[in-house]
Amino acid sequence: MADQSHSKPIHHQEYEKKQHREEMKQQVLTFGLMILFTIIAFGMVIFEVNSYFIIPTLIILAVVQVAFQLYYFMHMKNKGHDMVAVMMYGGAAVAALTIITFTSIIWW
C-alpha cells in the first residue's frame, strides 16, 4: 500500500503496476455505474413513475451507491480495513436500532 516502489525490485514494480491498472479499471467501471444509477433515479422521477415503485427502488439504488463509494473509492475492499468496517457496521446497527424503536414504539 505504501508507495515506495522505487526501492523495490523490477518484478514487484510490474506487479504493482498491474494492480494499479486493475484498480483503475474497477474505479472507472464503478464510476460509470454510479452515473447510470443517478440517471435512472432522476429519470424515474421526471417520468413520474408510480411512487410505490420509485421509493423502494431509490432506496436500493442509494444503498448500492454508498457501498460502491465505500468499497471502491474509499478502498474498504482492500486489506487492513477490518476495523473500519466493524466500526461502520456497528454505528449503522445502533442507528438502525434507534430508527426501529422510534418507528415501532413511539410512532406506531
Partner: peptide
C-alpha cells in the same frame, strides 16, 4: 411534539 422522544434519546 412528543415528550417521550427525549426519554428515548436520553437513555439511548
Amino acid at each position: 411534539g412528543n415528550a417521550i422522544i427525549w426519554e428515548h434519546l436520553f437513555w439511548i
